[in-house]
């Protein structure tokens, strides 16, 4: 029972973690992409469609990643090349993603999906207590942990990571040093898009194994909040994602147990928790000031 709850929490946390880690890299490069929800839902519909037509959940996941990255290019072109307002363009990406996915996914509504298989290692998976937990979850779960470690290592232990952070902290100086600010930001935005796409694919290939319109239900926005909550540090994103996973699973279990609270109030808990957490983090102005990438959301036009 306990083991089962931990596993469902991991399943709820994994898409949040992947999307938030992607957005963390984007924001570290100085770009605020509010289109996570839109890229995620595009990943979800592309993943479901590819898996449904080919029968392979792996091709589905690949399609989800590509869809997210391609869709993020739209945002990159507008904000980086045409220097449009990042907040407005991010909102546009979300609105377009929700609209397009609803249109593209209409034929798939109610169809049975293809599910990503769980890992099974003979002996190890059957170990008592920890077997399922450590050796029997879905492959994306392990990838999400690897991704967190890889991003933490990349950002703080490699030269390329330092370059990316410098672009996010002061794009003027980075440009003066001969760094191609726009190219780095393009790559970061596409990485974020790929991650959001993968997170969406996880929802439609594993979490629900169905296509439902607007199935992301605000998870992209919660991922954005997680980045703030984590003050732009990868391991704190991991902690935050599992905290939110626990809240959303907790409210589902409370609903199932028939607690005398209307289900709508319980469903509102993850959203209220997001607000509470944001308040707790943001009230410490010094802390947020130190960690926020200094060029976040500011437009950049290279001079020659």
């Amino acid at each position: 029972m306990f083991e089962q709850i931990i596993i469902t929490i991991a399943t709820a946390a994994t898409p949040l973690l992947i999307a938030a880690i992607g957005e963390l890299v984007v924001e570290r490069s100085g770009v605020l992409n509010l289109g996570v929800e839109g890229m995620m839902i595009m990943g979800a519909v592309a993943g479901f469609a590819a898996a449904f037509t080919t029968g392979s959940p792996w091709l589905g996941l690949a399609a989800a990643i590509c869809a997210g990255a391609l869709f993020s290019l739209l945002f990159a072109f507008l904000t980086l090349t045409l220097v449009t307002n990042q907040v407005a363009t991010g909102l546009a990406l979300t609105l377009l993603g929700l609209g397009l996915s609803g249109m593209l996914g209409e034929t798939f509504t109610g169809q049975p999906g293809v599910k990503l298989p769980l890992i099974y290692i003979p002996v190890l998976t059957e170990l008592p207590l920890v077997g399922r937990l450590l050796f029997g979850q879905d492959p994306v779960f392990y990838l999400s942990l690897l991704l967190t470690g890889a991003v933490a290592w990349f950002l703080f232990r490699t030269r390329a990571g330092l370059t990316l952070r410098s672009v996010g902290d002061n794009h003027g100086s980075a440009h003066a040093l001969g760094i191609n600010v726009i190219r780095i930001r393009y790559l970061a935005v596409m990485f974020g898009g790929a991650c959001a796409g993968a997170a969406g694919g996880y929802l439609s290939l594993l979490y629900t194994t169905q296509w439902i319109e607007s199935m992301t239900a605000g998870r992209g926005w919660i991922a954005l909040a997680l980045v703030v909550f984590a003050s732009w540090r990868p391991w704190r994103v991991l902690a935050g994602a599992y905290l939110f996973g626990a809240v959303s699973i907790g409210q589902l279990h409370a609903q199932a147990l028939g607690i005398k609270i209307p289900s709508q109030f319980l469903s509102a808990l993850p959203y209220l928790a997001t607000i509470v957490v944001l308040v707790l983090i943001s009230r410490n102005r010094r802390l947020t000031m130190i960690n926020t990438p200094a060029s976040l959301g500011r437009p950049f036009v290279p001079d020659r």
């Binding site: 907040v87 605000g218 926005w221 209220l272 997001t274 607000i275 944001l278 308040v279 009230r283 947020t288």
Partner: peptide, 27 residues
């Protein structure tokens, strides 16, 4: 209020409150 008092990002809080209002209305 949250933006002025706690420096909280108004984009995220105002959006989260959409879901809360819809659920409350549903109830």
């Amino acid at each position: 209020f949250l933006k002025v008092r706690f420096n909280t990002n108004e984009i995220l809080t105002s959006l989260m409150l959409v879901y809360v209002a819809q659920l409350f209305n549903d109830w």
